[in-house]
């Protein structure tokens, strides 16, 4: 029996959603290439990767929350609060080192995440509404204590600017060299770490268990508090990391940015096949979702359409895929006489 290369690589069959996503990317890529051959270039790839890195990290965090059956809308606020506080702390101490600034942001992010987890666990509140509230509280508290000053390039810590401009490797193009951003190994590290935690550790398996049925999970001996703490602290930590990457990429620190784009990131994770009933979702799907988002965001211009068409295209694909996923579930339910609407 022959096994497909995909199965050999991932040790599982490709999910329907992943198949659709790959098909959409291929079809879209072909159309754009036919219309504008310059699309297939190192320049496009380099831009897409640089822009997509931060979103990929956030989307991976969101995927974990969705797998656990929750929804988190506070991660953009956490990213900004953690990144901004860390940078402010660094400025106050006149410290300018990438490592500690990043660690600071990650720790602050994880702490804020733990607040979410404790509220959700102890008061049994709906995750969406809790995180909606905490997002405003986190961001508002930061605005009142640290202020909302923006920092232009001259005032951004040099280590961040260096991080944003660094490349892992550069490829000599015809006109100019194309750099591949230093964020790539960070994203790769996050993907590998998340994969390992989700699929190879006890706590990761309990995230899936919690997502598919909290009641049975707790009877199986899953510690729900520990699992919730892990989920929201991990998402918080990833958000903190993203905050630093975001400021580094733009070399501009704006504490009002990013907040408000959380639903778009959730949409990316959802498009990747993470189901709200929890227990399902793949990292590959989420990464493909990021690719689609980045493609629509940056390359519609090759088709002569401005970036204002991004939402229309992305929204259509999202609704289409949602219908595909849930129609199947509905048919299964009907066959097995499960009466839900």
């Amino acid at each position: 029996m022959t096994t497909s290369p995909f199965r050999r690589l991932f040790n599982r069959p490709m999910t329907t959603v992943e198949r659709f996503l790959v098909a959409i990317i291929v079809v879209y890529g072909t159309i754009v290439t036919l219309r504008a051959p310059q699309f297939l270039s190192l320049a496009t790839l380099s831009d897409l990767l640089r822009g997509g890195s931060g979103i990929a990290i956030l989307a991976i965090g969101v995927t974990i929350v969705l797998i656990s059956g929750g929804i988190d809308v506070s991660f953009t606020a956490i990213a900004i609060v953690a990144g901004y506080s860390s940078v402010q702390l660094g400025r106050a101490l006149e410290y300018d080192g990438l490592l500690l600034l990043t660690v600071g942001a990650i720790v602050i992010g994880a702490l804020l995440g733990s607040i979410n987890a404790l509220l959700i666990h102890f008061f049994k509140l709906q995750t969406l509404i809790v995180t909606l509230a905490t997002a405003s509280v986190f961001h508002g508290t930061m605005a009142l204590t640290l202020g909302m000053r923006t920092y232009t390039r001259a005032d951004v810590p040099g280590s961040l600017i260096g991080f944003g401009e660094a490349n892992v490797f550069t490829i000599q193009g015809e006109a100019r060299p194309y750099g591949f951003t230093m964020f790539l190994p960070v994203v790769a590290g996050v993907v590998i770490l998340t994969w390992f935690l989700l699929y190879r550790t006890r706590i990761g398996r309990s995230v899936f268990a919690l997502g598919s049925n909290p009641e049975s999970a707790s009877r199986l001996g899953v510690n729900l508090l520990a699992t919730q703490l892990f989920i929201y602290m991990y998402v918080g930590a990833l958000s903190g990391l993203m905050g630093i990457i975001y400021f580094s990429r733009l070399a501009y620190i704006n504490p009002a940015a990013l907040v408000g784009s959380e639903l778009a990131v959730i949409a990316i994770a959802v498009i990747g096949g993470a189901k709200l009933e929890g227990g399902e979702g793949t990292l590959l799907g989420t990464l493909l979702g990021v690719v689609i988002w980045q493609l629509f965001q940056n390359t519609l211009i090759f088709l002569g359409l401005g970036s204002q068409y991004n939402g229309l295209f992305f929204g259509s694909v999202l609704i289409f895929l949602l219908c595909v996923i849930y129609r199947r579930q509905r048919q299964i339910n009907k066959r097995s006489l499960v009466f839900t609407t």
């Binding site: 959730i266 949409a267 959802v270 939402g311 229309l312 929204g315 259509s316 609704i319």
Partner: peptide, 10 residues
């Protein structure tokens, strides 16, 4: 969530 993105997109 999907229709929100879609309606805004239109």
């Amino acid at each position: 969530l999907g229709t929100m993105v879609f309606f805004t997109g239109i």
